[in-house]
Write a protein that binds this DNA or RNA. Structure first.
Lengths: 205, 205, 205, 205
DNA sequence: CGCTAATCGAGACGGTACGTCTGGTCTTCTA
DNA sequence: TAGAAGACCAGACGTACCGTCTCGATTAGCG
C-alpha cells in the first residue's frame, strides 16, 4: 500500500538521477580530503561533481547534512575479530577507530560536525545516528561476546557508554589534539590501561 | 642588544590600547556564548567591543587566532585540592574540566578550533600552547604529589600524556558528542575507572 | 557560426534582469545629483537600487564604468532645430549643451570621469565613445545643413573637431571652472564670437 | 620691531621645519605625476616626503588643499612676449596653457580639483584664486597691450572672461577629452579662429 | 504520440562577511 | 611646541559563498 503510494508519488515526472547522488558524495569526500571542512564549499562540490547546485540542494539542505551523508556513507561495516578475548577485542576496536580518524576526510569533517552540533540539536541527532552509534555497537557486541565466553564479572563491569566515551574520546584527543599517530606501541599501552580499568572495576576484580 | 633594540622599536609611536584588547576578548567571549563558533563574525566582535576592525586585525590575524586568545584567556589556572590523595585529585581535575566545557562559549569554540587545526599546523601549535598544555600541568603536578606521598608504584605508572588524553578526551566526548552532562554520579564512575586503570598498570599493582 | 554559439551560450542559465539595469542606472543618477561624484559609493547605489552588489559588479566593473553608463544613458539624442541657419543651429547646440551641464548629476560626474580618464586610456575610450562622440554628430550635421543651404564658404571652413572642442570646452569651462550660469546674454555673445570666427576663417570671408 | 615681535611669537616651542613644506609639496607632485589624482594617497605622500602625517595635516587640512597648493606652487610666472601683436600674444598664451596641461601632474590634478569643486564652493574659490586667475591675467595684460598699441577696436571687443573661457576651455577639451596633443599646426588653426572671432566682433570690424 | 510533471545544467539574484585600504585624528616619546 | 611614529575610528572597497530563483532543455509515465 504504502509502496504503491510512494511509487505513485514518485512515478510522475523525471526521476532523480542516482549517478548524481554518487557523484556528489564522491566529490564531497574528495574535497574534504583535499581541503578540509572549513574551506569546503557547496559550489565547489557541485562543480567537482559536474552537477548544478539545485540538484545538490534538492537532496541535502545544507553543508552539514551533505558532509554527514558523505562521511556516513564512507564508514564500512566494522567487525570484531573471530575467536578473540577481551583484550584482542579492545585492541581491534581501538585500531579501527584510529584508522577511521587517520583518513583526512574524516578528522576534519568529524570535528567540524561536532563543533556545529553544539549549537544544533538536530544536527547532533543526525551525527550520532549516522556516525557515532554504528561504532558504539562494537562495544555492545564485545560485551556480549565476553559474557558468552563466561567472563561474566568483567562483562558486567562494562558500562557501554562510559567505555565508548573513553575509547573514542581518548583516540580522538590523542590524534587530533595531541596530534600524535596511533602507533602500535601507544595502542598497546592504552589497551592495557583500559583492560586494567575494566578488570579493576569488576565485582570480583 | 637585540632586547634593547626591540624595546626602542616598540617605544616609538602611540602604544596599543590595552583596554581595546580586553574589550575585544570580552566581546568575543560574549558572542561565542550567545551565538557559537560558526556564526561568530569578526565584524560583529569589533562592533560589540566598540573598536574598529583594523584595531582587531592588528592584534589577531584571523577568527581562529582571536578565538584561541579569548578561550586561553578564559582558562584561569586550575588548581589541585590541598591534602588530597590520588582519587580526590582526579575527581577535582575531572570536575574542573567539565565545568569549563559546560560554558557555552567553551564547547563551541573548542571544537571549532580543533576542527580547523586539523588542516592548519600553525593553529594546532597555538591551540596546544595556549589551551591544552596549561591544563596538562595538573597531571604532572598530581604525579609529583603522589610520589611525594609515597604512592611510588602508582606514580610511576602514570604516563602523563596518556592519562591526559584519557581524561580530557573522555570528558569532551561525553559532554559534546554523547551530549550528556557530567553528573555527580558519572564523574564517580569515570574516576573509579581511571583509578583502577592506574592501579592495574602499576608494577606492584 | 560564432553568432550562433554566442547566442546559444547566452541563452543558458537565468537571464539578467533588465529591471535591475534600470534601477541601478537610476539610482546612480539620483545619488550623483544628491551627493556628487566624490562621495558616490557603489554600495550605496546598490542599496538605493534595491539590488545586491554582485548584481551591480556583474554589469559594471568599477565606479567609473557605472557612472559612464549612467551619464551616457542620460544624454538623449540632442536635435538641431528645423529650418534654422548657421547661427540658430549654433545657438541651439550651445543652449542644449548648457542645459545638460546644469544638471547636478552631470557636472560632477563628467569632470570626475575626465579626471580619471587622464590616467586610464580604456576609460577615456569609453567616455569618448559613449558620451562625447554622440554629441559631436551635431556639428557634423550642422555643417551638412549649411552646405545644403548653399553656405558653402562657411561650411568648408568648419573644422568639426576644432569647432566641437571650442563649443564643448568653452561651455564646460564657463559653467564649471568660472562657475557662471549660461545666461541668455552670455550665450548670445559666445555664439556671435564663434560665428565671427567661422566667417572670418572662410575662404571667401 | 616687527621682527622682534615675530621673533617673540615664534620663539615659543619648536619652529616649523620649512624643509618639510618643500618635501611634502615635492612628494605630492611626484606622486601626482606617477599615479594621478585618484590613486594619490595622503599617507603615501607623507612617507615619500619622509614626514609624519600629523606634520602634513598641520599644514593642509585635506587632500584637496594639499594638491591645490602643490599645483599652484608649480605654476611659474607666465609671460607675454616682448614686442608682439595680437596674434603672437594669443599664440603665446595658448602654447603656455598647453604646456601646463601637458605635464602629467597637472592634467590629472586639475580635473580632479574641478570635479570636487562642483560640490565644494570653498575649494572652487581656492582653485580659482591659486590656479585659474593667475593665468587669466595674461588675457587682461594682452588687452592692455593691444590698447597701448592703438588696436582700440579689437581691444574693446575683448571680453576677458569669454576669451579666457574659450582659450582655456578649448585647450583643455582638446588635450584631455579629445586626447590630442596641441601640435604646432593645431595651435595655428585655433589662434586663427580666435583672432577671426575677435576681429569679427570688433565694432569697426 | 502528445501531455504532464518533475528533473537537469547553467547561472543570475539578494544577502552577508570577508580582510584590506584610506582619510583624518589622537597619543606617545624625542628634540 | 614641533616632529616622527604609529595606533585609532569610520567606512568603502571588491571578492567569495550561501541558499534561492529562473531559464530552457530533458526524460520519464499516462492517456
Amino acid at each position: 500500500m504504502s509502496e504503491n503510494e510512494n511509487a505513485a508519488a514518485s512515478r510522475k515526472g523525471r526521476p532523480r538521477s542516482s549517478t548524481a547522488d554518487d557523484a556528489i558524495l564522491g566529490a564531497t569526500r574528495a574535497l574534504l580530503a583535499e581541503r578540509g571542512w572549513a574551506t569546503l564549499t557547496v559550489g565547489d562540490v557541485a562543480v567537482r561533481a559536474g552537477v548544478a547546485k539545485t540538484t545538490l540542494y534538492r537532496r541535502w539542505a545544507s553543508k552539514n547534512e551533505l558532509v554527514t551523508a558523505a562521511v556516513a556513507d564512507m564508514l564500512g561495516t566494522l567487525e570484531l575479530p573471530e575467536d578473540g578475548d577481551l583484550r584482542s577485542d579492545l585492541d581491534s576496536v581501538v585500531r579501527q577507530f584510529a584508522q577511521l580518524l587517520a583518513r583526512p576526510e574524516m578528522s576534519s569533517a568529524l570535528m567540524g560536525l561536532i563543533a556545529d552540533s553544539t549549537r544544533d540539536p538536530e544536527l547532533r541527532r543526525r551525527v550520532r545516528e549516522a556516525i557515532v552509534e554504528p561504532q558504539k555497537r562494537l562495544v555492545v557486541e564485545g560485551r556480549a561476546r565476553a559474557r558468552a565466553r563466561g567472563e561474566v564479572g568483567v562483562a558486567d563491569a562494562i558500562d557501554v557508554d562510559l567505555v565508548f566515551d573513553v575509547i573514542a574520546g581518548t583516540v580522538v584527543h590523542h590524534m587530533l589534539v595531541s596530534a600524535e599517530p596511533a602507533a602500535e606501541e601507544w595502542v598497546g599501552r592504552f589497551v592495557a590501561f583500559v583492560t586494567a580499568g575494566l578488570v579493576g572495576c569488576a565485582p570480583g576484580g
